[in-house]
């Protein structure tokens, strides 16, 4: 294979783009039958750089917060299903273990109850505006960090339920058999149950991911310019609602990309079942 230097490729593409521009210009200024259409097309292409720049915020926020939430939510899910088998003999140690387990379960359930039960918009507002007013220690200077924290906390609650459902869909016998051959609880979860649960998690996690991609437009209330905010700003500034067209196309491209990735992952992990 012959290697072409990057700069040559870029200049070639640049030339092609210039040709395309000239072509569109020719139609737009030519005054032909569809000239108005090409004038609009030229406008849309002019907005693209600003929209793509704004969609980086959307993308970065979605990916970082979903990944953070995934890690956190595994512990939440395990916390929610933690139980101690009832035993006749009750030594002090057993009572303490039972107490701790119950506390973990209650805390996890309470967390999910709170973060699923209040609007994400308000959680975002609370973290960015209310907490710093209560105590300056919580003053998060970076808008992105505030959004990331709020989104991660919120998504974790939803993902925890997805993961719990996936774990509990694995037949009980699997865990019992693993314990019977002498694996500890954590070992049997890590080696037997979770690998099987992965595949079942992927479709709902993909679902959640796409929801977050679109919900991320809420960050406009803390002045973070994501794709939706940029679009409405352009629409009101330039007084043209046409800008929603390329913005929707960008959202579709992003969702399509991640749908393909999740589909691939589902096929790959399918080998376990």
């Amino acid at each position: 294979m012959r290697l072409t230097p990057a700069c040559v490729v870029i200049s070639k593409w640049g030339q092609k783009l210039d040709n395309l521009w000239a072509w569109i210009d020719g139609f737009a200024d030519g005054g032909g039958e569809h000239a108005a259409l090409f004038v609009e097309l030229r406008k849309i292409i002019g907005w693209l750089p600003a929209l793509i720049e704004a969609s980086w915020i959307t993308l970065a926020l979605t990916v970082t917060s979903v990944v953070t939430a995934l890690v956190f939510s595994v512990f939440l899910a395990l916390g929610k299903i933690a139980r101690v088998q009832s035993q006749r003999t009750k030594s002090i140690g057993q009572l303490v273990t039972r107490g701790i387990t119950t506390a973990i379960r209650w805390i996890s359930s309470g967390y999910v109850f709170f973060f699923r039960g209040t609007p994400l918009l308000m959680q975002l507002f609370f973290i960015y505006f209310t907490l710093p007013l209560i105590n300056p220690v919580f003053n998060i200077k970076s808008r992105f960090a505030a959004a990331w924290i709020a989104f991660s906390l919120n998504i974790a609650a939803y993902l925890a339920e997805i993961i719990r459902a996936a774990i509990q869909s694995i037949p009980k016998g699997q865990l019992e058999a693993a314990r019977a051959v002498g694996l500890s609880y954590m070992q049997s979860m890590r080696l037997i149950v979770l690998p099987q649960a992965y595949k079942r998690m992927i479709p709902p996690v993909c679902n959640e991911f796409i929801m977050v991609l679109k919900d991320s437009s809420l960050v406009s209330i803390i002045a973070l310019t994501d794709l939706t905010y940029k679009t409405t700003m352009l629409a009101s500034n330039k007084a043209s609602s046409l800008v929603y067209l390329p913005a929707m196309a960008i959202y579709l491209v992003m969702t399509a990309f991640f749908t393909v990735i999740f589909n691939r992952a589902e096929k790959k992990l399918g080998g376990y079942e």
Binding site: L61, V63, V67, T68, K141, S142, F144, A145, W148
Partner: peptide, 21 residues
């Protein structure tokens, strides 16, 4: 790799304002 990308993005995205701070 995914975790590294996330950490990188966070450093990049959250760091901007801390620098100017």
């Amino acid at each position: 790799l995914l975790l590294a990308i996330v950490m990188g993005t966070l450093l990049f995205a959250c760091g901007e304002s801390d620098e100017t701070n």
